[in-house]
Simulated assay, not measured.
Amino acid sequence: MTAPILDYTLTDGIAVLTMDDGRANALGHAMIDALAEGLSRADKEAKAIVILGREGRFCAGFDLEAMAGGPDKVVTLVSAGANLLMDIYTHRLPIVIGCTGHALAAGGLLLLAADLRIGAEGNFKIGLPEVAIGMTMPVFGIELARDRLARHHLTAALTQARIYNPQEAAQIGYLDMTVPAEALRETALVRAAELGALRQPAFANTKRKEREETVTLIRETLVDDSKTFDGASN
């Protein structure tokens, strides 16, 4: 029997979604669907959400094998990933990410979409390397970065594809804080409980208003922008 790639637990009103595909937690269709299902379930029974990865690996980006079938495969997968990111970015519940290790490409975008990001200390790589590997950065990635990263680091992070360690990532906005790896899960749970105690629907309504402009731009451009997902320039 195949082990599940996403574990869902509910403790004291905190839904914990732990990604573990036994490898690098790449975002393929199965992982995207599992995360979307977990978010939907949490919406019905939790007050806050924590997303974790496997030890040393949070998420390595989109699954390159799933995109190997040509431009249509790229568009299908990356569009699904964009919709997942919007689900996280607009979710009515607070979402805390415990970044357990490397977070690259779509892994970095997951960090940008969450409400609070806590990183494990260590020799890990965090960032958006798309340009360095020949991919045009999609509008949804640019706009999430524009919203969450320090303005004077935006060009280096996006167009120059700079990669950061966790301490640097916290300084520029991929993370909000770092903690020793052994304290990551507990810290994420504590912070999720604090955010989950905020009054609803005030939290959800304010989050929606805060992010409405970015969400509208991303949704309006997603179809046309999908033409660039395979690295094309127009």
Rank of each mutant, 00 (worst) to 15 (best):
L6V: 09
D7V: 04
T9I: 13
V16I: 14
D20C: 06
D20K: 00
N25Q: 06
A30W: 00
M31P: 06
A34R: 14
L35T: 02
G38I: 09
R41W: 07
K44H: 12
K44F: 00
E45F: 06
E45P: 03
A48C: 05
V50W: 01
V50I: 12
G56I: 05
R57K: 13
G61D: 10
A66P: 04
M67N: 01
A68V: 01
G70Q: 04
A80F: 02
A80W: 04
A82R: 11
L84A: 12
D87K: 14
D87Q: 15
Y89Q: 00
Y89E: 02
R92A: 12
L93T: 05
I95A: 08
C99T: 10
C99R: 03
A105G: 07
A105N: 11
A106I: 07
G108W: 00
L110C: 08
A114E: 00
A114F: 13
A114T: 08
L116R: 06
R117F: 13
A120Q: 08
A120S: 15
E121S: 15
N123L: 06
L128I: 11
I133R: 12
G134P: 01
F140V: 10
F140R: 02
I142W: 03
R146T: 06
R148E: 01
L149K: 03
L149A: 01
R151A: 10
H152Y: 10
H153G: 00
H153R: 14
L154V: 03
T155P: 00
T159Y: 12
T159L: 12
G173F: 02
G173P: 03
Y174L: 09
D176K: 13
M177F: 12
P180V: 14
R185M: 10
L189M: 15
E194G: 02
A197D: 15
A204M: 08
N205F: 05
K207Q: 14
K209I: 09
E210I: 07
T214R: 06
V215C: 02
L217V: 11
L217R: 15
R219M: 11
R219W: 00
K227F: 07
T228E: 00
A232D: 00
N234F: 01
